[in-house]
C-alpha cells in the first residue's frame, strides 16, 4: 500500500533521513520507534506529502506522490487520516465543527447525516456529547481523542499517528492504545504509528521499525524486535542512557 524507496531528507546542512526503504502492506500496523529528533515525524509527514524529499520515491497505492503538486496531493490525502502530536485542533471551532471539517464541501451529505457521523466518531473515541465544547476546554487526552475522531470520521484507508501517547498519563495512554487497536480492527485501516512509548509500540504494532542514525536500523515483527539482542535495539527498548553502567 505504501512503498518508500531511498528516501533522503536534509534541512540545510543537517541530514535527517538517508536512504530510507519501507514497505507497508494494506491492513497492517507498523510502529516506527527511535530517539527524539531522529526524524520519525519527518518520515511520517513524507508519507502524506506534507514534506517533499530531497531524493527517493514514495508510492501510495502505486501512485508516485513525490512528483505531485499540492492540488494533486489533496486527492491522495483523502485516503489518509492523521493524528498530530499536538492534536492540531482548529481552536476557532467547536469539537463538532472540527470533526465535521472534512465534510464541509460535501454537498451529498445533509446536516443531519453529518451530525450523525460526527456523533458516531465521537462515540468511537469514547467522548459522546461533547460536540459543543471548544478545544481550549478539553484536556490533553481528550484533545487527542477528538483529533482521532476528526481523522477517522471520513473512513480513511490509512491512519498516521504522530506520538499518540506523548504527554499523557499511563491510564490515558492505555486508553489511547486500546482505541488505536479498536479502530485498526473495527475500520480495517492501515496504521503507521510513530512513538517512543515502548509499551504502546509492543501493543499496537504488527511490525516495528527502529530509526537510528538517519536510517531504518532494524525492522521486523514486533515480538522479534522486542526479543532482539542487538545492542542498539536493546538500548532503545530498555531505555538505557549509558550502556557501560553496571546496572545495564
Amino acid at each position: 500500500m505504501i512503498e518508500v524507496q531511498g528516501l533522503t531528507k536534509r534541512f540545510g546542512a543537517q541530514t535527517v533521513l538517508e536512504g530510507i526503504d519501507l514497505h507497508i502492506e494494506r491492513g497492517e500496523s507498523v510502529v516506527i520507534i527511535g530517539r527524539s529528533g531522529c526524524g520519525k515525524s519527518v518520515l511520517l509527514k513524507h508519507l502524506i506529502g506534507l514534506l517533499q524529499p530531497d531524493a527517493g520515491s514514495i508510492r501510495v497505492d502505486g501512485q508516485e506522490i513525490t512528483r505531485m503538486n499540492e492540488r494533486q496531493l489533496l486527492e491522495v490525502r483523502r485516503k489518509f487520516g492523521m493524528l498530530f502530536q499536538s492534536a492540531a485542533l482548529f481552536d476557532s471551532m467547536t469539537v463538532a465543527e472540527n470533526v465535521a471539517f472534512a465534510f464541509r464541501n460535501r454537498r451529498d451529505l445533509t446536516p443531519a447525516e453529518i451530525a450523525r457521523r460526527v456523533a458516531e466518531a465521537l462515540e468511537l473515541v469514547d467522548l459522546p456529547g461533547i460536540e459543543k465544547k471548544r478545544p481550549a476546554e478539553l484536556s490533553g487526552g481528550m484533545r487527542k481523542r477528538v483529533g482521532l475522531a476528526r481523522a477517522i470520521v471520513y473512513r480513511p484507508e490509512i491512519l498516521l499517528y504522530d506520538e499518540p501517547t506523548s504527554g499523557l498519563d499511563p491510564i490515558v495512554s492505555d486508553s489511547i492504545d486500546q482505541l488505536i487497536i479498536r479502530i485498526r480492527d473495527h475500520l480495517r485501516v492501515t496504521s503507521v504509528v510513530v512513538t517512543h512509548d515502548m509499551r504502546s509500540a509492543r501493543r499496537v504494532g504488527h511490525r516495528v521499525a527502529l530509526l537510528h542514525d538517519h536510517r531504518i536500523y532494524a525492522m521486523g515483527p514486533t515480538p522479534s524486535i522486542f526479543a532482539s539482542t542487538d545492542p542498539v535495539v536493546r538500548r532503545f527498548i530498555d531505555g538505557v542512557s549509558d550502556p557501560k553502567h553496571p546496572d545495564f
Binding site: K45, I48, L50, E70, R71, L73, L74, E75, R77, R78, F80, G81, M82, F84, Q85, S86, A88, L89, F90, D91, F101, A102, R104, R150, A151
Partner: peptide, 17 residues
C-alpha cells in the same frame, strides 16, 4: 499561530488547500 500549532498541516491532511 495556525502554522506553529500544526493546524495548517492538519488542514492539508483534511484535503483542504
Amino acid at each position: 499561530t495556525m502554522r506553529v500549532t500544526e493546524q495548517i498541516d492538519a488542514l492539508r491532511t483534511l484535503a483542504t488547500h
